[in-house]
């Protein structure tokens, strides 16, 4: 999702209207960002229903907090932080309940890198591995490798230098390789 100057202007115009209580302007924002918000939440949660719930809560938070939104901050990175914080809170609150479910079953095989499509089980294995990363490492992997964003876009979104994107991505992939390597090693 390339964020052009025109997109930014449209967002700001609708957000200013929504700030004054214009529901149709807020509706337009939801329509433009619903898939994006859902996928960002999914990157943190790996669960469709939880992502639906959290992305909706994030939109409601935007509606409630619009008065305090600083136009100069830009909408997308502000909204991203809202989704991120809600997702991390959700994970923290549910982690104790889900501990047993999340723990890896070593008998499940992860597809080797040369296989075209990952099975549902393999995907779960990768999500479990992503769960073991620090949140700031996980988000970079999700944005770059799963969402297919360029480093510059990620740096803008998270308001961090490109060098930090690269170093976090390096550490994240290294850790993931450590976790996942045993599962495909025998097939290589």
């Amino acid at each position: 999702m390339v964020y052009s100057i025109r997109d930014r202007e449209i967002d700001i115009a609708d957000l200013l209207l929504a700030r004054n209580g214009d529901k149709s302007a807020f509706h337009r924002i939801v329509e433009r960002y619903k898939r994006w918000a859902f996928n960002i939440a999914f990157g943190y949660l790996g669960d469709e229903m939880a992502s639906y719930d959290i992305s909706q809560k994030a939109f409601i938070k935007v509606w409630r907090k619009l008065k305090s939104w600083d136009e100069s901050q830009g909408f997308r990175s502000w909204f991203y932080m809202i989704i991120k914080n809600l997702s991390l809170n959700y994970r923290r609150d549910t982690s104790r309940l889900c501990e047993e479910e999340i723990s890896p079953q070593l008998s499940v095989e992860v597809a080797a890198p040369d296989e075209e499509v990952l099975s549902a089980e393999a995907k779960k294995k990768v999500w479990d591995a992503l769960d073991k990363l620090q949140p700031q490492h996980r988000e970079i992997v999700v944005l770059v490798d799963i969402r297919g964003m360029k480093y510059r876009q990620v740096a803008e979104l998270l308001d961090i230098p490109i060098g930090t994107v690269m170093s976090r991505l390096y550490l994240a992939r290294k850790k993931l390789a450590e976790i996942l390597k045993p599962f495909w090693e025998s097939e290589l």
Binding site: V117, L118, I146, R173, K174
Partner: peptide, 20 residues
């Protein structure tokens, strides 16, 4: 190390977002 990173990158790139 580059080879190992390439493999993990390939696996990650096959992780599609859900199609609702």
């Amino acid at each position: 190390e580059i080879e190992e990173m390439r493999k993990i990158r390939e696996v990650l790139r096959k992780m599609s977002e859900p199609k609702m």
